[in-house]
Amino acid sequence: MAAAFLSELNPKLEEIADVKTAVSEAVINAVIHGYGMEEWDGPTQARRKSAWIHMESGLSDNVFEVSIEDKGCGIPDIKTAMQPLYTSRPELERSGMGFSFMEEFMDEVKVESTFGEGTMVQMKKKIGIVEQMEEE
């Protein structure tokens, strides 16, 4: 869905991949950490856990915006959660790189969370700007 929106801005393939990676990180965070599922088993399990992930994306000028929101358990300490390699669930073979990758691939990442109520991740990325080649 995000990729469809994005295509209006005539993005480079890498930019699409960047956004996909960041969105994938945010969504899987919501599933695994927000709702405490080991993995996404489809709508049946989601209904059982009344899991719900809301995603919204939009464009303004050449900035792509996306927000991913869940009504899961929330993050008690956002600063700790965003540290590279930190994971609250080491037993699941998680890398702890989720937020780091979001920050690496997007221009702006904002996290709002209320413990016990849910989490919203908002991300922005400028699309279609030709970066100057680094001189070697």
Binding site: K20, E25, I28, E93, R94, S95, G98, F101
Partner: peptide, 14 residues
């Protein structure tokens, strides 16, 4: 592979 998220890292580390 053209796109990868951190699960790619996890599978290698594991």
């Amino acid at each position: 592979t053209r796109m990868m998220d951190s699960s790619g890292i996890e599978i290698i580390m594991g």
